[in-house]
Simulated assay, not measured.
Amino acid sequence: MRAVTVRPPEPDSLALSDLPEPEPTDGELLVDGLAVGVCGTDREIISGAYGRAPEGHRRLVLGHESLGRVRQAPPGSGFAAGDLVVGVVRRPDPEPCGACAHGEFDMCRNDGYTERGIKERDGYAAEVWTVEPGYAVPLDPGLERVGVLMEPASVVAKAWEQVERVGARAWFAPRRVLVTGAGPIGLLAALLGAQRGLDVHVLDRVTGGPKPGLVADLGATYHTDELDKVTSALQPDIVIEATGVGRLVLDAMAGTAPYGVICLTGVSPSGRHLTVDAGCLNRELVLENNVVVGSVNANLRHYRQAAEALAGADAAWLERLITRRVPLDRFAEAYAPAPEDIKVVLTLGE
């Protein structure tokens, strides 16, 4: 079978490799890969910034945003041949911390977890892969064209869960949410905000392309002004920050209404220094009872929430998030960003 691989931490080692087809063990599902999504994490692994191959192996199979069709399922697994399925990314530490022991492996406290396509486990960018039934999530058959969005949607589902849990520390009846960044995470965050009946606003610097129309078709409002101007006018109850841009992260912390919740989902690059009035920022957070929370990855509960959110969305709208589909034999094109990309998908089969 063919698979997209790298040799971490060697930069620019991306290749289409011929590998033996995996043999399912211990009740695993055998799955024909249909597609994988491409994101910034993949590009950082390709650059050599991080990523670890499985123990005893030189190459790592990429791909953590999966979609496949079950070829073979053992009796009693809850799956059958032909089912659409997504594989969970993270696995808990075999010597679990308290969070992992309670099924909250996305909150692992000791770095002993592994991740498909990222850290010590081969990923899903292969024509065939296996997955344990307990780490496979079924998808509605109607989501075949867009089911590859499940993993980023799970990250967003977790972010919303975190916001609502933090808000529930006292009375919480949010009306308005501002999402910064109209990439896949930002647009899916806006979708889940609209599904909650909130007044949704999205900020991005792009004025053309598909993003403004996608936001408008959610019944949301698209902004391109400076963040401080937008937050001053809106006074959002919730900010979901999906850019990782340092200046926006700091401005978002100071931009909510009192008793606001800011959820950071974008990962900022290190090495850039910004001047911050730390005293003023602290004063606003304390005196307004604001909360800043970081959120990354997802556990099984969030994948199931994501499956429900995608099933309840307009499939045509979801499909517009996928701006390029690249066949496996042209794999390198999928990892080279283009100006109007939202979500790029590498197609593996069918």
Rank of each mutant, 00 (worst) to 15 (best):
V200Y: 09
L227I: 14
L188K: 08
I185S: 02
K158S: 01
G112P: 04
V286G: 00
A170P: 01
E226G: 11
F79D: 04
G117Y: 00
Y303A: 03
Y113D: 02
A313Y: 07
R324G: 02
G134C: 01
P54I: 08
A194L: 01
D32A: 15
V131L: 15
R325P: 05
M253Y: 07
G197K: 10
L348D: 09
P96Y: 07
V86Y: 00
P327E: 07
G27N: 11
E55G: 07
L287C: 12
C280L: 12
G37V: 10
P269V: 03
S66M: 05
L84T: 00
S154P: 00
P339Y: 15
P133C: 07
P141F: 05
A157P: 11
E95G: 11
K229L: 15
G255D: 08
D32C: 09
F172H: 15
D111I: 12
E104P: 00
T231G: 08
V137D: 04
H302V: 05
L274Y: 14
A189Y: 01
A242H: 06
L191F: 09
P94K: 00
P96L: 08
G208K: 08
V326M: 02
G219W: 14
G117S: 04
G260Q: 05
P174Q: 02
H57M: 10
P212H: 13
A315Q: 13
L274R: 12
R324Q: 00
D32G: 14
A242W: 02
H273C: 14
T180S: 04
I262N: 14
A190Q: 08
V85Q: 08
V200M: 11
D341C: 09
A220E: 08
E132V: 12
G266V: 03
V326C: 03
L227D: 06
L187E: 00
G167Y: 07
V215T: 01
D26T: 12
M150H: 10
T275V: 11
L318I: 03
W129C: 10
I342F: 04
V267W: 11
G63N: 05
G294F: 09
P141I: 10
